[in-house]
């Protein structure tokens, strides 16, 4: 009987040991799976921050104004990446992959930098155009002033010259406004304004040249 009890005890002990082992194994398996879960992909937060910063920099370079379609393409690209990230966030951690989003963000970053450069180039082009036309118009104004000294005077042209001088003063005032606009960095408006001033200065020059030509023809 005693022997039988010992046998039972031994058997139970073995079972308990086995059960303990099984439990340990199960826990180990869960641990492996948990490790698999927890070691899965992380969202590309740094890339998002960098891309957003690059877009802000492009915005600061007035890309929205000078290269609007390109700037829109960049913001569209960021939106695609953000949607993809959130889409991956919706999935089970094990199945998440941010490769596509990371690639899109890298592309967004490159694009944003290019757009920033393009905006600066375009801005510089418009600035140069404004400055060049301003210089041309200033030269035209000087030429008009020079022609005024040669234009018919006395009873022949006193009134006409007064009118031309008055117009010239308006052109010069407009050129001063153009300079202010250029200094303020509003190059597109400066170009519009300086073109108008150039147009008027050219017409005044033509008017004077015609009057002088008529005067010399009479001699």
């Amino acid at each position: 009987m005693k022997l039988f009890v010992e046998l039972i005890n031994n058997l139970l002990q073995t079972k308990i040991t086995k059960m303990k082992k099984n439990l340990m194994l199960t826990l180990a398996a869960f641990a492996v799976l948990t490790l698999m879960f927890t070691s899965c992909a992380k969202p590309p937060e740094m890339e998002v921050t960098n891309a957003k910063a690059a877009i802000e920099a492009a915005k600061a370079a007035e890309a929205e104004r000078y290269v609007a379609p390109q700037f829109k393409a960049v913001t569209d690209s960021l939106n695609v990446a953000l949607t993809e990230i959130e889409n991956q966030n919706s999935k089970f951690a094990l199945f998440r992959s941010y490769k596509k989003a990371t690639a899109t963000l890298a592309n967004t970053l490159t694009l944003a930098n290019t757009v920033k450069e393009n905006a600066a180039i375009r801005k510089e082009e418009v600035k140069n155009q404004a400055q060049q036309t301003l210089a041309e118009t200033t030269t035209l104004v000087s030429e008009v002033k020079e022609l005024i000294t040669k234009a018919p005077k006395g009873k022949e042209g006193k009134e006409a010259l007064e009118a031309i001088n008055s117009d010239l003063a308006l052109v010069e005032a407009s050129l001063a406004e153009v300079s202010t606009l250029i200094n303020n960095g509003d190059y597109l408006t400066a170009v519009d304004k300086v073109k108008a001033a150039n147009d008027k200065a050219a017409s005044l020059k033509a008017e004077l040249e015609e009057a002088i030509a008529k005067k010399s023809m009479r001699k």
């Binding site: 007064e162 009118a163 008055s166 117009d167 308006l170 052109v171 407009s174 408006t189 170009v191 519009d192 304004k193 073109k195 108008a196 001033a197 147009d199 008027k200």
Partner: peptide
């Protein structure tokens, strides 16, 4: 003088508007 000045300013503004 002001009539002509107004005319010239109007022309300047018009050309500027047209460009924009």
């Amino acid at each position: 003088g002001t009539t002509r000045q107004n005319f010239t300013t109007a022309r300047l503004r018009y050309v500027e508007s047209k460009e924009a």
